[in-house]
C-alpha cells in the first residue's frame, strides 16, 4: 500500500449526484446520470466500461476540462463547480496532470518545449524551468530526446513526453484517458509501468482503459455503464 494512503485519508475526489447533459443539435443527451464517487488520496483506480458509458466525460470533469451540468464535485474539499475560469485554469495547471490518448502535444514544439508549457503558465523562472524539464525528461527516460519534435518521436515516446508534461508542476492527481490506446503492447506496457511508479510516489492515479489486464493491476476498478457507476470493486 502506498504511503499516501496512510498519510492522508480524506477523499481527494468527492462527487455527489453529478450529471452532465449535452445538447447535440436539438437532441439532449445525458452522458452522466448521477455519479456518486469518491477517490481517496494516493489511490490508483481504473475506469472501465463500454463505449458511450460516460468514461471520458467523467474524466474530463474530474480534470476540470469540462464542467458538470448539476451535482457537486469537491477536489481536495474545494467545490470545483463554484470556481471561476481562472481558478479552473490554475487547478489544471497545478493540481491535475492529464494524459490524453492522442498525446495532445504542440506539434511545432520540441519535447523540451512541450514539457515547459505548464511551467511557463505557473510562472516558474527560467533557470528553474530548465532544471525541472531536464529532470522530468530523465524521469520518463527521454533525456536524449529533448530537442525532438513530436513528428520525430514514436508513439510511446510522445506519450512519455505527455506524462512528463502532466508531472511538470508536481500535481497530486494524474488522470489518463486511454493512455495506451494508440500504442503497441510493448510501449503500452512501459507507459503503464510509469503510472505504477507514479502511484508508488504517492500520487492519486486514475486511468481509463479498455484493457482489463491493465485495469486489474490498479487497486480499484470503477465500472461505468450508461452514465452511472455500476461496480466499485476493490481488487487490491
Amino acid at each position: 500500500m502506498s504511503e499516501g494512503l496512510i498519510r492522508r485519508s480524506e477523499s481527494m475526489i468527492e462527487m455527489r449526484q453529478l450529471k452532465k447533459k449535452y445538447l447535440t443539435g436539438k437532441v439532449e443527451f445525458e452522458a452522466l446520470k448521477g455519479i456518486d464517487l469518491s477517490v481517496e488520496s494516493g489511490e490508483m483506480a481504473a475506469v472501465v466500461g463500454p463505449s458511450g458509458s460516460g468514461k471520458s466525460t467523467l474524466m474530463n470533469i474530474i480534470g476540470c476540462l469540462d464542467v458538470p451540468t448539476s451535482g457537486s464535485y469537491l477536489l481536495e474539499r474545494e467545490p470545483v463547480n463554484e470556481m471561476t475560469s481562472n481558478q479552473l485554469a490554475d487547478v489544471r495547471n497545478k493540481k491535475i496532470g492529464f494524459v490524453f490518448q492522442a498525446f495532445n502535444l504542440l506539434p511545432y514544439a520540441t519535447a523540451f518545449e512541450n514539457i515547459e508549457v505548464p511551467l511557463l503558465f505557473a510562472r516558474v523562472s527560467g533557470k528553474k524551468r530548465r532544471e525541472r524539464v531536464i529532470d522530468l525528461l530523465a524521469r520518463v527516460g527521454l533525456a536524449d530526446k529533448a530537442g525532438n519534435k513530436p513528428t520525430e518521436m514514436s508513439g510511446g515516446e510522445m506519450q512519455r513526453v505527455a506524462i512528463a508534461r502532466a508531472l511538470a508542476n508536481e500535481p497530486d492527481v494524474i488522470l489518463a484517458d486511454e493512455p495506451t490506446g494508440n500504442l503497441d503492447s510493448a510501449s503500452g506496457g512501459e507507459i503503464v509501468n510509469l503510472f505504477h511508479e507514479l502511484h508508488k510516489t504517492g500520487k492519486t492515479v486514475i486511468i481509463i482503459t479498455h484493457d482489463m489486464s491493465i485495469a486489474k493491476q490498479a487497486g480499484r476498478i470503477i465500472k461505468l455503464k450508461d452514465g452511472l457507476v455500476e461496480g466499485n470493486g476493490n481488487l487490491a
Partner: peptide, 14 residues
C-alpha cells in the same frame, strides 16, 4: 486545438 492544449495544461483565457 493548440489553444485547447494550452488551456488543458493551465493557460488562463486572458
Amino acid at each position: 486545438r493548440e489553444i485547447g492544449i494550452k488551456m488543458a495544461v493551465g493557460a488562463r483565457r486572458s
